[in-house]
Design a protein around this nucleic acid. Structure first.
Length: 959
RNA sequence: GCCCCGAUAGCCCAAUCGGCAGAGGCAACGGUCUCAAACACCGUCCGGUGUGGGUUCGAAUCCCACUCGGGGCACCA
């Protein structure tokens, strides 16, 4: 508890000892927080298991309200951090007061890079610093009076938690995606198919003949978690590989902003691509902001198109295209530099007629290809993107056959074709694709117009400035032998040529996704170890469930192997591999005790957050990840939630494609394997806005402490220590020297004032600037509320026992009606405004009837729970109001007896009439036309039309 | 370059179906209280909705174009 007292407090304490000031607020708040904790007020019972309380909760409506859990950083909280936590708490309290069993808690996401970097910088073990940070954060958050079920608060670094993270990994590892059934199945069922011969083993040999390593390789092509050598994002500056989602558009690490290079490395991957289709289509079942759904759709990037086979010598190269209709316009072909068939198609010498600019100056094709590949590999992603406008590439010396035109077309390699997308090969149609157009111009390649331009540019692409890529036109120059597309629209031509390709057996319609598999291993110490070991032959073994958790070993040297950020030639090393005692382990995996080598990579920090909602549901279950009955109760599908999931999930929009996509993927795997009934983890998603703050910079551009900046003239000329500084909008944070801690505000005004202010600032989903000066407004409101009920001098109740009059009842019930709607719709800013309006009415009224006071206290309780509990107690109630019934409006008092009707003449207001709310349009029109002021306003002009909208408006059109 | 979101009083924001632009708060100004100040209290002031068109009896709200601000994607064939 804080001892801070504002200057005014002490002076007033003598005459107004019961004034609602900082000291009294602090006393009330800590007392109620202690009581809630002692009584377990916010503990939500489960239907079954250790958290069941013997009562039947099945029939009660229930609500699972969740925040995106925090990373326990060492910097401490600023007032922006708890915005979402306050909002969910207000909502959760409202739900509790409307009869719901509410699951609301908060855990900590404590593995990962920042925690490790903090530890390295401070020379403390990550576990120590992380646990300290969690303790600090808990302390700061406790002061806000958040009604959490503390029994359910998990931390991802707790071995009892990550045991299940590892268990889920094993579920995913031991599964494959059955395309026919469109779901994940246990890998054992696939092995059985291989053993029985029901399914042919790739490579054609019998399953029994394969060695352990060979079986690993076969199964690795099916498993949903697999280890494979693939081109990955290697970040020497961080010393680890990164997921695509963690690399920014300009090819740098999202964390640390270091360059990222493509490197072929054996790494753990998650086959999230198997779920691409379901991850898109199930978005339709979710109540999420459209912007987030759109980002996920874009990230998954579904494209419909076709695969087309091109003969290249004796080989076949398959390309993916979204424009099969332009096949007649394909005048060359491009393979990604890493494409597996490049070496096969390269001839010994340049064919006759090879243009000089195609060869890259090399004496023969093999040399040209090797040189180009080397140059491409040395480029970082940053350089590659910077060079995007300048097309580079080199001729392979090979020619492909265009399957419709029969023409021989040159085959190039170029880095604008990516190995990771489609088939890593394209047919180039320079006339109708801007990238192909740029490449064709650079290399003097032929172009053919096959879609008639609609902008008068003519049909000779060589005279064009850019490609013509509009869909809204018809095909030309596209006829040969048995196939003609001429005259067809682009859409119809696509369908025709796709069907024709399928008939010929040289192509088919297909769907392609931008999404890549998820790179799941990191070269860090501070993460979940993989429950995987290797035997002396190198064969992989999953540890049995009984050996979980594989604990993070206690070591002295936990620092990562980092390199010069630009050293692309470096390669990752895992910190755990330094610890031979841990790496080499004697285990009995069923065939006697043998020596195994542990997997030394660790999981990415996303792992722990992929499933924590499930653990909130059943946090101390030691026999299963979550009891099916508890999962079904809190998260199961219902009519309102067709895919099931958490009822409300609040967090920042920055997790749109990372956490939210990964968590959906894991949840779906668990659903397929029968562990959860819900299909999606989060039914309703709400993105809260950011609290911004002004940043003040000095002449050199460095931020100066915002709290010390003055504006002596009040004219926007700011000074810090006498020096002029300039103001700009920015984020709140320590580095910008404008962070305001929630503790500062709580010290000066109390936590209820802070909660109320944050809710009143504006709509929850909009970013808005913090203004410490404005906080006093919320404080004054609570003081007025207090004063309406309790004497500041004696501490006695000042409410009266009179029956409230009609005007008071109308004000009360209108407020109840409005606030209820605002609460349910999470419009907390307008709920606060209505509560202030009602309270101001009572201030003006001069006294507050007890019955009204009680309703007001209940109305404000979700927003300012401490003062509400205190007033409730003082009004004579012995039970906490946490489960009291939220006030319900009496409809008779919500509607006014008379309504002011506006009479307009030609849209201008000319008169006002007091009318009954139930008046009909016809009666209102007659009344308006009879009104003398209106008659005067019409002034004898002809009434052409009268629009009556009872009971609020009549508009008379004359003319 | 493409896509999404936003713009209302000096500031933060209301206006639920297209129907009187104002609910609430901050600041400013005047007053009460005070020896004085702070706190508190009472009261007052303030804009026609970013710009330009359109639809409509009527537009902050719907449509089109533009400006500014925020966000996402960016060689994905």
């Amino acid at each position: 508890m804080s001892e801070t007292t504002p200057a005014s407090g002490a002076a007033e304490a003598a005459t107004e000892p019961f004034r609602y000031g900082a000291a009294l607020a602090a006393e009330i708040e800590s007392r109620w927080q202690d009581l809630w904790e002692k009584e377990g007020t916010f503990n939500a019972p489960n239907p079954t298991g250790p958290l069941a309380d013997g009562t039947s909760v099945a029939a009660k409506p229930h609500s699972f309200i969740m925040d995106m859990f925090p990373y326990p950083s060492g910097a401490g909280l600023h007032v922006g951090h708890p915005l979402g936590y306050i909002a969910t708490d207000v909502y959760a309290r409202y739900q509790r007061m409307t009869g719901h069993n509410v699951l609301h808690t908060l855990g900590y996401d404590a593995f990962g890079l920042p925690a490790e970097q903090y530890a390295v910088q401070h020379g403390v073990h990550p576990r120590v610093s992380t646990e300290d940070n969690i303790a600090n954060m808990r302390q700061q958050l406790r002061r806000l009076g958040l009604g959490h079920d503390s029994r359910r608060s998990i931390s991802t670094i707790d071995p009892d938690y990550y045991r299940w993270t590892q268990w889920i990994f094993l579920q995913i590892f031991n599964s494959w995606y059955d395309e026919d059934a469109a779901r994940a199945r246990p890998i054992a069922e696939l092995v059985a198919q291989f053993e029985s011969g029901e399914r042919e083993v790739p490579g054609g040999r019998a399953w029994a003949e394969l060695s352990g390593v060979e079986r690993d390789e076969v199964l690795g092509e099916y498993r949903l978690a697999y280890s494979k050598e693939v081109p990955v994002n290697w970040c020497p500056g961080l010393g680890t590989v990164l997921a695509n989602e963690e690399v920014t558009a300009d090819g740098r690490s999202e964390r640390g902003n270091f360059p990222v290079f493509k490197s072929n490395l054996r790494q753990w991957m998650m086959r999230i691509t198997a779920y691409a289709d379901r991850l898109i289509s199930d978005l339709d079942l979710l109540d999420w902001p459209e912007a987030i759904k759109l980002q996920q759709r874009n990230w998954i990037g579904r494209s419909e198109g076709a695969r087309v086979d091109f003969g290249v010598g004796d080989d076949t190269v398959t390309v993916f295209t979204t424009r099969p209709d332009t096949l007649f316009g394909a005048t060359y072909m491009v393979l990604a530099p890493e494409h597996a068939l490049v070496d096969a198609v390269v001839p010994a010498e340049w064919p006759a007629g090879t243009r000089d600019e195609w060869t890259g100056g090399a004496a023969d094709p093999a040399t040209a290809v090797a040189e180009y590949r080397a140059a491409a590999a040395a480029k970082s992603d940053v350089e590659r993107q910077a060079d995007a406008k300048v097309k580079t590439g080199v001729f392979t010396g090979a020619y492909a056959t265009n399957p419709v035109s029969g023409e021989q077309i040159p085959v190039f390699i170029a880095d604008y074709v990516l190995m990771g997308y489609g088939t890593g090969a394209i047919m180039a149609v320079p006339a109708h694709d801007s990238r192909d157009f740029a490449f064709a111009q650079a290399f003097n390649l032929p172009m053919r117009c096959v879609v008639r331009p609609t902008d008068g540019r003519g049909e000779d692409p060589h005279t064009w400035d850019d490609a013509f890529d509009t869909y809204d036109s018809v095909l030309v120059n596209s006829e040969r032998d048995g196939i003609s597309l001429d005259g067809l629209s682009v859409v119809d031509a696509k369908a025709r040529i796709t069907a024709w390709l399928a008939e010929q057996g040289i192509g088919e319609g297909t769907v392609n996704y931008r999404l890549r598999d998820w790179l799941f291993s990191r070269q860090r110490y501070w993460g979940e170890p993989f429950p995987i070991v290797y035997d002396e032959t190198g064969a992989m073994h999953a540890l049995p469930e009984s050996m979980l958790p594989v604990e993070v070993p206690e070591v002295d040297d936990y620092s990562p192997h980092t390199y010069d950020p630009d050293d692309a030639a470096s390669s990752p090393k895992t910190p755990l591999s330094r610890n031979e005692d841990w790496v080499n382990v004697e285990l009995d995996l069923g065939d006697g005790v043998r020596t195994y080598r542990r997997e030394t990579n660790t999981m990415p920090n996303w792992a722990g957050s992929c499933w924590y909602e499930l653990r909130y549901v059943d946090p101390v279950n030691s026999t299963s990840v979550v009891d099916p009955a508890n999962e079904a109760y809190w998260m199961g599908p219902t009519a309102e939630k067709p895919a099931g999931g958490v009822d409300l999930y609040v967090g920042g929009a920055e997790h749109a494609v990372l956490h939210l996509l990964y968590a959906r993927f894991w949840h779906k795997v668990l659903h397929d394997l029968g562990h959860v009934s819900s299909v999606e983890p989060f039914h309703k998603l709400f993105n809260q806005g950011m609290i911004t703050a002004d940043v003040y910079r000095d002449a050199r551009g460095f931020p100066v402490p915002a709290a010390e900046v003055v504006d002596p003239e009040g004219n926007g000329q700011y000074f810090w220590q006498g020096e002029p500084v300039r103001r700009e909008a920015g984020k709140m944070g320590k580095s910008l020297k404008n962070a305001v801690a929630p503790d500062e505000i709580a010290d000066e005004y109390g936590a209820d004032t802070l909660r109320l202010y944050e809710m009143a600032m504006g709509p929850l989903d909009v970013s808005r600037p913090w203004d410490t000066r404005a906080v006093v407004g919320s404080y004054r409101f609570l003081q007025r509320l207090w004063r309406n009920i309790v004497s500041e001098v004696t501490g006695e109740l000042v409410v009266t026992d009179e029956e409230p009059d009609e005007a008071t009842l109308r004000a009360l019930h209108k407020a109840i009606d409005g606030i209820r709607g605002d609460m349910a719709g999470m419009r907390f800013n307008t709920a606060v405004a209505k509560a202030i309006e009602l309270n101001n009415f009572l201030v003006k009224r001069g006294s507050t009837p007890r019955s009204v006071a009680e309703q007001v206290v209940l109305l404000i309780a979700p927003l300012a729970p401490h003062i509400a509990e205190e007033l409730w107690r003082r009004l004579g109630h012995e039970q906490s109001l946490a489960f009291a019934d939220y006030p319900v409006a009496d409809p008779a008092y919500v509607v006014d007896e008379t309504v002011t009707c506006v009479v307009q003449v030609k849209g201008k207001v000319k008169a006002r009439l007091e009318v009954a709310p139930s008046i009909s349009d016809a009666d209102l029109e007659a009344l308006a036309l009879a009104d003398p002021t209106v008659v005067a306003a019409i002034g004898g002009a002809q009434v052409r039309k009268v629009i009556a909208r009872a009971p609020k408006l009549v508009n008379i059109v004359t003319g």
